[in-house]
Every structure is written in structure tokens, then in C-alpha cells.
Write a protein that binds this DNA or RNA. Sequence first.
DNA 1: ACGAAGCGATCGGTTTTTTCGATGACTAGT
DNA 2: ACTAGTCATCGAAAAAACCGATCGCTTCGT
Lengths: 306, 306
Amino acid sequence: MTSDPTLKQLRYLCAVAEKRHFGQAAKSCFVTQSTLSAGIQELELSLGLPLVERGHKNVLLTPAGEKAVKRALDILTEVQAMKEEAAGATEPLSSSIRLGAIPTIAPFLLPDALARLRKDYPRLKLLIREDLSANLVSLLAQGDLDILLLALPYPVEGAEVHHLFDDPFVVAYPRGTAFSGRRKLRPQDLEGQEFILLEQGHCLRNHILEACQLTDSQISLGFEATSLQTIVPMVANGIGITLLPKMALDAGITKNSPGVSTLEFTGKKVKREVGLVWRKESPRVKDYQLLAEYLVNPPDERKRQR
Amino acid sequence: MTSDPTLKQLRYLCAVAEKRHFGQAAKSCFVTQSTLSAGIQELELSLGLPLVERGHKNVLLTPAGEKAVKRALDILTEVQAMKEEAAGATEPLSSSIRLGAIPTIAPFLLPDALARLRKDYPRLKLLIREDLSANLVSLLAQGDLDILLLALPYPVEGAEVHHLFDDPFVVAYPRGTAFSGRRKLRPQDLEGQEFILLEQGHCLRNHILEACQLTDSQISLGFEATSLQTIVPMVANGIGITLLPKMALDAGITKNSPGVSTLEFTGKKVKREVGLVWRKESPRVKDYQLLAEYLVNPPDERKRQR
DNA sequence: ACGAAGCGATCGGTTTTTTCGATGACTAGT
DNA sequence: ACTAGTCATCGAAAAAACCGATCGCTTCGT
């Protein structure tokens, strides 16, 4: 088995084809004539046929040489293209990011952030996958997703966690009942209430329980829902109360349910956190930090909108 | 300026992309893991960005890495194609040959030979240029032609000459005049005759003069013609006599001119030679010798046809 | 909790390849 | 014949590629 051609050899060949002169070709490649000569010979050896016809006055290419030069030019331009593509890829947020987000964050945080991202980085392709935290974490681990938008705390097994902001809970209750007249609540005020929470698997459920220092067994659960959007009408119908992420409230989740009132908690303890998670080894931290800025900004904007 | 990628590095990258495992990729490249690892690193350095995300359990490619792999595969297949093309080109008479031939040979020798060549080597592309010997020789020297079909002797300045066969001259004279009744002629029998020859520049003219040991001044020239095909009718009209290459006679040049009779010479001295000429440095001698066989064969075939 | 195993990165030393400058062989032109 | 110009060749030095061993880290099994 003869050895393979070398890119260097192909460059030599192209130079010879262009200059039709070994010495000048060598100069244009910044090597000595002997080096180039040997390179051409080796290429001919590896291809098994003569490519160049060495005359005394002029150097000519054999038909095979002509074809080889065409190929070589193709190859070299492709290599060049690869380099340029790589150079272009160093520009931030210029390729695709596969983002996983949980259902209790994605609909409230992403639409606005994505719009602004698209405006500033039109070359970015964001692929969104909405799923439960557990599934997202495993998808991230096996490389099917690049980054996750999760509610924290959540166990992420040696992945990098980047805190974005706190997301306080607010109580949503049927208008005119229970806490009417109160301006703020303490967690313990909720005791004895009928709760409507998301079904098992949603981290929001656990975060709410933890934030209120409750356990599954301590609270009476009238119903379980599959999404926040379905919980709100249930509250409006007087079936029970729930805790909503403020983020969802800000995004207008109660807009079409006038029967629902909301109350904030005192202090800042009753909350979940929102953060990004990526593989520790990921080399695109720069991209992710940039992405983080666009996800953190919305709070300011929401204040304005409120 | 960072160095260029290497084909080897591209192969390493593709192997990693395929195996998603450095050790196995290294094995498939028949190198050690350290070598491959270093190669990938160098490639990343030369492209200026990470291509591979090294996890503990699985190796992943960055988006830039994915693109680079696509490019790399393209490049490698193209290199492979170049090699295969080169290998295919070693097959004889498979590419193009630019053949120069003089007007006093080409129309008589080539049509039949080309037909048989086309049948046996359909991939051969023969480009024919018909011109005077002097022009052909210079075209050959500067590489615009690959091989010449000439009448010899002719000065060819350090080119390679390959004798094909002798081409005797025959006398063509108006039927019923001069040599009627003779079976053979000696050159000196032509003295005093009115000659019709080709115009200056045709080597046939000089070959005839030499063969008969005459000079321009010794013979009376009634007319000069621009082609053999036009000489024959002139002979038929009784304007004079001429010498024709037997090759032309065999090809039927007098077929439509019943007023022309022909006579051979005694011995084998009154002739020109037909040969191929190529640049001494030409690496395609194999092809040319094969071509020669097809040009030499016709004499046998002509006997059959006569 | 701890040891073993798996993986990629790194290090030193050896082998191989590349490169250069000088020289050789050959031709064309003077 | 001699000179200038060209590509091929040679030997030594420089560069690189490569390997085996080892390191650091993580994971898995006990």
C-alpha cells in the first residue's frame, strides 16, 4: 500500500501547474526547489503515474496531471472553506443551540427572550425541547441537548449550574374567599387550605412544597393538574388554591380568569430559582453566558409592562 | 499565521466522529491514543476552536465540529477520488492525445486507424490537428500537441522519432501518354517531364525532389497545388505528371479520375518514410507505442482491400 | 467509602520525515 | 567549448510524528 497524498504535495502540484517552473513554484510555496521537487516526485509515486513532464525549457502537465490539478484545487479550496467556516464559527451565538426547558418556565420566559435573541443574533438557531427536569437532565448528559433552563434547586449530577434569578411564588385563590383583605402572607397562613398542584414529576410541585415546608402527606390535594394554564381556571372555580410562579403571573397567566386573586408572601424565602445548566465539559460557555443575559433581562422588562 | 490542517488530522477527526471514543478511533487509524489525541488537539488549535467535547462517558462534537466533520469527509472522499482517478488513468489510451498530422498523410492513414482505435479504446479522445510539418514541430515543442505523425526524414530538434513504415512513391501520369506500356520506372526516366507538385512548405514536395535526386531548379513546374486531391484531376487533364505517395493511392485517391495511370518505381529507394514524433521527456511512450501499432497495421489491410 | 477500571491528556525519548544547501546531470544558447 | 538555466539527487541538520508510560479524573462495583 502506497502512502496517501499530502495537502502540502497538492499545493506543490498546483504551484507547478500555475508557474510551469519548479524553481518559481518552490519560491511561491516558500520552500527550496529541492523540497518541492521531492514533494512532486513523492506525489507521483503515491499516485503511481507521472503528473509532470519535465522539459528543459518548459514544464508540462500530463493529462493525468491536469486532472489531478483540478482535484487538488477543489480539495485545497475546500480545506480553505473549512478554515473560514471555523473562523466564522468563533462569532458568538452563530450556530445552533439545543435548549431544554421545563413547562413551568418555557412558556413564560422564552417567547420574549427568543424574540430579542433573534433580533440580535439572526444566525442563531435555537431548538427548544419542553420536558420534565429529569428527562431534560438525562438528555443533556447524553449530549442530545446543549443547555437546560431549569427551576432550582435540582440535582444535576456534575453539570454546571448558572443561577439566573429568583422566582417568588404567589398565592392564587378564588376571589372573595380566604385571604381577602390581606396584603401579604406567611407560609403558615396556608395551613388547612385545599391545594391544587401539578402532577408528580413536575419540579414546581416539589419546590412549592419545600418553600412552604410541607410534605405531600401534610396537605390535602383536591386535584392534580397537568399544566399551570389548567390550574388557574380551577382556582377561579373555587376548587382550591395554588401557588404560582411570579414569572407566570407576570406573563399574564391570570389575565383571562378574573375570578382569581393573588397575594405575595412576606420576605423573599418563598420562591424557586431559575438557572441554566450545561455539561461541565462544554466548550461553549461564552455562548451560554450570552444567552443567560437575555434570559435575565426580562425581569426589568416585566416591571415596565406590569 | 497558524498552520494548516493535515489530511491525517482530518482522518482522526472523522474517526472520532464515528467512534465517539478516542481509543477506538485511534485503533481504527492504526495509531496510539496519544497520537490521535495530539492530532485532534493540533487540529483544534489550527482551526482556532474546540471541535470535540470530551466528556467522561461519551465524546461529543461541537456544532463547529459537526460541520468540520462534514467538510473533512468531503475532502477525504475527494482525495480518494483523485487516487482512484489516477489509478484508472494508468490504463493505456484512456485519456486524450493531441495528435498533429501533415495533410499528405492524415486523410489516407487516419480514418481507418481511428475507427479501429475507437472500437478498442472507447475512452481515448484523439484530437487531430492537420498542419505543415514545421508548424506541428513547434506546436509539439511548446506542449500544444502530444505527438506528431510526420513524413521522414524531417529535422525534429531533439524529439523522439519512431519509424512506422516506408511509403513508396508512384508516378501518376495522364493515361495513354509518356510511360504507357512500361511496367516499372527508374527515377531518371522522369527527366524532362512537366511536374505538378504541392506548394512550398509541404514536406512531400521536398521528399519527392530528394527521392528523384532533383532540385527545384532542375525540374519544370507547370503548376503548384495546395493538396494532393487537387493534383490528381490536374494530371488527368494532361497538365503534367506527379509523384503520389502509395498510401494515397491505396486510399483511393485516383478512384474518381480514370484519366490517371500510375506506375511504380524499381527498387525501394524512391519513397518517403512515415513516423511518429514526440517529446523525449514525454512519459506516455507506452500510449504512443500502442498508437503506433494501429498506424502500422493498415498496410496489411490495404493489401487485402486492393 | 474505597479500590479498580476506563478514559483522555500529558510527558520524554526515539524514530521518522521534512527541509535545506550544495552538487550533479543535462540542455540550450552563446 | 563554455555559460546559464533547469530539475534531480545527496547528506546533514532540523522538525515532526509517534509511542509507551504515566497522570488526573470520573465512574462503577463492592
